[in-house]
Design a protein around this nucleic acid. Structure first.
Length: 280
DNA sequence: CATTTATGAGAAT
DNA sequence: TTCTCCTAAATGG
């Protein structure tokens, strides 16, 4: 479920519901039993999102680290805690609310050193004020890898996932295959600023919307997108459907086991540099 | 009801 | 590059 906006939203939500008071922690499924015992009864000091990683900082310098992976999910509600349904990795209860966690890739308790190590391997998070976009650009510019892969590399841009990568590339008019080396400082700043704006919007709305005003369903008098995700986007999961700007069918192509989507007209592939022989 | 898929990422080959 | 893990919902017969 999660790109960075989801995790930042969860950090805010969990702070509102649980910070400043002790929580009880349990792992009905059992797989987080030892970690839950460490957290149980402690006061939640604060919460934080670093890219797609969610951190709960508890008294005693213990940090709960959760990464939702591809299909992890949180749910919360008012007490009392409902009867367990399905695989429940963790259940937290505070003074008025409960929190359920299912299917995370990571759910563990870290000490200060391990938490610092986690931070150190993450790149610039567009949703954080302490992000260093110039450092991200340095990595991008030095790589011939496709820009789509670089944007999704969490050690370069933390929190950007498949949807934001595909969409920001459409909005920039760049094919996903464009090599990082083609991105100068001006282009990078434009991409970064756009990505940050989109993701901030995502935190506020709780969904990913990337279409400009003139391409909304209302403006175009078209049916709104209906799928689980619900956001209005240009290319993500729209293979074969007409580009909202030029009408050309959207292309889908594989990359590192994931699907990329782009408009072959609005996002022309960079010229292939051909070995050149000859001359005058 | 079985199979497939998913906004991810690390390890293995 | 391919595999593997985690879980639930969508998809297909």
């Amino acid at each position: 479920m999660p790109e960075g906006h989801t995790i930042h939203r969860l950090a805010i939500r969990h702070r509102e519901l649980f910070a400043g008071r002790p929580v009880t922690a349990a792992s009905p499924q059992g797989r987080f039993a030892a970690g839950a015992a460490l957290i149980d009864g402690r006061v939640l000091r604060d919460t934080e999102a670093c890219g797609k990683h969610l951190l709960h900082h508890y008294e005693g310098d213990l940090t709960l680290h959760v990464h939702l992976g591809l299909y992890g999910k949180f749910a919360d509600g008012e007490l009392p805690v409902p009867a367990p349904v399905g695989q429940l990795r963790m259940v937290l209860t505070g003074s008025g609310h409960w929190l359920e966690l299912r299917g995370p890739t990571a759910c563990e308790v870290l000490d200060v050193g391990a938490t610092d190590l986690l931070r150190s391997r993450l790149g610039a998070d567009p949703l954080r004020d302490d992000a260093d976009p110039a450092a991200a650009h340095a990595r991008v510019r030095a790589s011939t890898k496709p820009l789509a892969a670089l944007l999704m590399d969490q050690s370069i841009v933390a929190g950007c996932g498949l949807i934001y990568a595909n969409e920001v590339l459409f909005r920039a008019g760049l094919a996903p295959q464009t090599p990082g080396t083609a991105i100068d400082a001006v282009r990078w700043t434009a991409i970064w600023d756009d990505l940050r704006a989109l993701m901030k919007e995502g935190v506020l709305r709780g969904r990913i919307d990337t279409v400009h005003t003139e391409h909304t369903p209302e403006a175009m008098r078209r049916a709104p997108r209906v799928d689980r995700h619900g956001g209005e986007v240009y290319v993500y999961r729209r293979p074969g459907q007409p580009c909202l700007v030029c009408g050309t069918p959207i292309t889908r192509g594989p990359m590192a086991g994931r699907n990329l989507y782009w408009c072959p007209v609005c996002q022309p592939e960079p010229p292939v540099r051909r070995a050149r022989r000859r001359s005058a």
